[in-house]
Design a protein around this nucleic acid. Sequence first.
DNA 1: AGATGGTAAGCAAGCGCTTAGTCAAGGACA
DNA 2: TGTCCTTGACTAAGCGCTTGCTTACCATCT
Lengths: 204, 204
Amino acid sequence: MSASTPIPAPDGDARTRLARAALDAFAARGFHGTTTRDISTAAGMSPAALYVHHRSKEELLFGLSRDGHERVLELVRASVARSVDPVRQLGDLVEDFVRDHAVAHTGARVVNYELAALSEEHRAQILEIRHQIDLVVREVIDRGVASGAFATPDPRMTASAVLSLGIDVARWYRDEGRWSPEEVAAHYRLLALRMAGANAPGPA
Amino acid sequence: MSASTPIPAPDGDARTRLARAALDAFAARGFHGTTTRDISTAAGMSPAALYVHHRSKEELLFGLSRDGHERVLELVRASVARSVDPVRQLGDLVEDFVRDHAVAHTGARVVNYELAALSEEHRAQILEIRHQIDLVVREVIDRGVASGAFATPDPRMTASAVLSLGIDVARWYRDEGRWSPEEVAAHYRLLALRMAGANAPGPA
DNA sequence: AGATGGTAAGCAAGCGCTTAGTCAAGGACA
DNA sequence: TGTCCTTGACTAAGCGCTTGCTTACCATCT
């Protein structure tokens, strides 16, 4: 035969398959509601295989949480980098953030609601990334208030609320639901700009 | 002795102590992360005592969830009943809802984030109460749009987002945090009215 | 005496994780 | 070319412990 590839498994290599199975299981039943047998069986392997590729169940969760958070941090930084106008920056940020939380709501659930299951040190690392995400939003709103584009009596709480609104999308969004990710993202862009007190939200 | 009371235990009767211990534990570590020994020990009893007062760990969760949801449903209905002006109704509703989710964030976490651990039938009962809560908010916004007091391209999604914003308070609020429940409630009132497109939010 | 509210002890099942080993692929060398 | 040895992925079996829950019994009230 001419095939020289190292025979890829049906859906990626074993390590990736285990990680994806864990993500789905954690999202559906939570960290403590998921057994190592759930994960390995879903990945088509024996329970011991999990420990060939990952040190423990907790470290598997940590890896998923860290990767997910870093992806979101890059996402919001990229949104803000696309322009200099705070109104457009906030709109883009919220639209991208919300779309992502709707599309990837399975991963976002693990990322946002399983922090308590992490070890002390791992949770601290994650909270640091979350802080960076918070800073991005806060700075956009602060600049908008400084320039007069936004008006809000408490910019910090408004920033917190805007992020909060987007995070909760991961909790309630369903694939078979009433709205597409794009529809939610577009409407939430408007809502966030109103929250910030933008005078003329503009079309896009 | 003159005391005729039936010797109340340090913090309420046994059933209540167990329920409160369960609520704290479920909020801190989740349903599956909590053992029946955690609960009974925190209530100052042996593991078997839990089954004298409650049928199972799941039914204990269900009771907490049902009571919590019914309390919130009564709360929002009372908020709306205090006036007839949609602007004031939505403002009062959000203010009361958010204050409650900040003050009672422990209970609200269980109520909002442990639904997956319930049995099929129990979860269905809870979802019905949640639907009633949703309807209250939706009707207030619909009436505001009809009267011209509100302006939003998708009243239904706006209603969903307003509730969502309040629910997420339970996730991030901390007692030792930056803001008092009253401060968050007041600011969120403004945010919700802006989201709904109220022209003049008014003072209170 | 019966009802009420509690406990000590423990059962069957399930948990995270480990151990000891199988098996296929690949390089080294006679 | 054939044989040996190493390496890496994987599993069967199971260890020690914990889980939710039950049973059999006891103390205290009315």
